[in-house]
Amino acid sequence: MEYARLLNLISSIITINDRDNDLVHELFEPFSGSRGEILEPQGKPAEFLYFINKGFLRLFYFEDGNEVTTNINCPPGFITSFTSFIEKTPSTINLQCITDCELLRIDKKNLDYLYRQGQKWGEFARVVTEHSLNYNEQRTRDMLVLNAEQRYQKLILKQPDIIRNVPLQYIASFIGIKPESLSRIRRQIIS
């Protein structure tokens, strides 16, 4: 069961056979993360790429003693400090479980091995990378162009699971405002 969501995602992008199914089971390791647990700490190279089966995770860093959330991710999705993971350099951000999480993880060596197993795995990586780049480009644009209320309204519309499951202080940081500003926006929306 824990591999079904990942295999469904993969098969929605490329055609996989029994050998590919076996590779996913061999190379991706089931892992449970507890609420509040730091999976990949700032200052160390990110060891794993995580696929989220259940739960919510965030990437954050510290600025002037405050936590700044740069990404919140939920199922089905991949998350890590990508630059650190790819380049094996110390991460500038922390990866933390917001809730208890059920994950599958793969290290860089095994991911590279998977990519060498055929052109279709490269195609899968290309599609996932393009999706991630598109998301990050849109998020950057939204942070520059939309005001705080518009960013919150877009989050409600596009990612309602985050609104229902993630603490307000993380959501506020994610959309670039203080928690008290988010509370005011929420009151205005409700009234």
Rank of each mutant, 00 (worst) to 15 (best):
R141H: 11
D100F: 10
R19I: 12
I190Q: 15
Q169E: 11
I14C: 00
E26I: 06
V166N: 04
L9W: 13
I52V: 10
Y170H: 06
R164K: 13
F51G: 01
K108L: 13
L23Q: 06
G122V: 03
A125M: 00
L168N: 13
Y115L: 13
K108D: 01
Q169N: 10
R58Y: 09
S81H: 10
W121D: 11
I98D: 11
W121Y: 04
F48N: 07
I13S: 03
L157T: 09
L104H: 14
S11R: 13
I13V: 07
T69M: 00
F60M: 06
V68W: 01
F78K: 05
P41C: 04
L103E: 10
V68F: 03
E137R: 08
N165Y: 06
N110F: 08
D100I: 09
V127R: 00
S173L: 02
N165M: 08
P160S: 08
F62A: 05
S11Y: 00
A148S: 15
R164H: 14
L155E: 09
Y135Q: 03
T83E: 07
R186Y: 09
Y152L: 13
L114I: 05
F174M: 02
D112R: 11
I177S: 00
I185P: 02
K108Q: 14
L133P: 05
E37L: 12
F48W: 12
